[in-house]
């Protein structure tokens, strides 16, 4: 597939390993490549020029979006929010090089955990220890809480936009495969739609998007979502009022009513 797209110019020069196309979205493409040398894997996010837009407007939008994403990542990383660090960028050329996060998406981790469970959403058998998955839910709540505390709204929270990065070898006792699937640090990724805001409304909508995405991606784990919100509630001071707002948002949906 990679050959269907011309590489961005920045990737046409020699490197220790050829870049590979990882994902392709409406706005841009994600490559895996290296920063400076082979032992620094990185993700390169490239926003190609849009032929249907006026060139001057297109250049301005691309530049502004790359810049916005880089600034949000910088702010989050400095505040201790678990996000990838920025390695390099060229806003005018439309690319952003960030740290490569090892591991699997949270979505995959949850699905591997649920793997052998019965189809329905019935409470698990008595002997099933749910601690590892509940613990993951709490780590998700804390990660989103720290993001919101920093004044950043992700804009597209899903379990695909969170990575589970394995902790260094030997730091934890050996776990079985299932426990391993939900172990690791939660890292938030893809800040292409992120904005800066500290309002209860924006934070509640961010949580609502995650709640809905979670319910449709993991219908069998829906009841576990309450642990996300519980951990979120204790992660920063204003979280409590965000959760009250979330009740309103659930009643009306993501978009505010334009009536009245």
């Amino acid at each position: 597939m990679a050959t269907e797209f011309p590489l961005p110019r920045v990737l046409t020069y020699p490197a220790s390993a050829p870049p590979s196309l990882i994902a392709q979205g409406a706005e841009g493409r994600l490559y895996k490549t290296t920063h400076l040398h082979a032992d620094r894997p990185c993700a390169l996010k490239y926003r190609p020029p849009k032929p249907y837009r006026h060139p001057i407007l297109d250049a301005r939008l691309t530049k502004a979006r790359i810049a916005a994403e880089a600034k949000v990542l910088d702010r989050c990383y400095r505040e201790g929010v678990p996000v990838p660090v920025v390695y390099a960028l060229d806003a005018a050329a439309g690319w952003l090089m960030i740290e490569w996060i090892e591991g699997i998406p949270v979505r995959q981790g949850i699905n591997e955990w649920l793997g052998e469970r019965p189809e329905d959403d019935a409470p698990p058998a008595e002997d099933l220890d749910e601690t590892p998955i509940v613990d993951l839910m709490k780590r998700i709540g804390q990660a989103v809480g720290s993001l919101h505390r920093t004044g950043v709204i992700h804009g597209d929270l899903t379990t695909s936009n969170m990575m589970l990065r394995p902790r260094p070898q030997g730091s934890e006792p050996e776990a079985d495969a299932k426990k391993k699937a939900v172990a690791g640090d939660v890292i938030l990724i893809d800040f292409g739609l992120a904005t800066q805001s500290s309002s209860d409304e924006d934070r509640a909508v961010d949580l609502y998007v995650l709640e809905r995405a979670f319910a449709s991606t993991h219908p069998r784990a829906e009841r576990l979502f309450s642990h996300v919100l519980e951990a979120y509630k204790h992660s920063f001071k204003k979280a409590h009022s965000v959760l009250i707002k979330l009740e309103d948002v659930r009643m009306r949906g993501r978009k505010r009513s334009m009536l009245g």
């Binding site: 910088d74 660090v85 920025v86 960028l89």
Partner: peptide, 8 residues
């Protein structure tokens, strides 16, 4: 953090 500052 320094490399990120430079990039930005």
């Amino acid at each position: 953090l320094a490399i990120m500052k430079m990039a930005l």
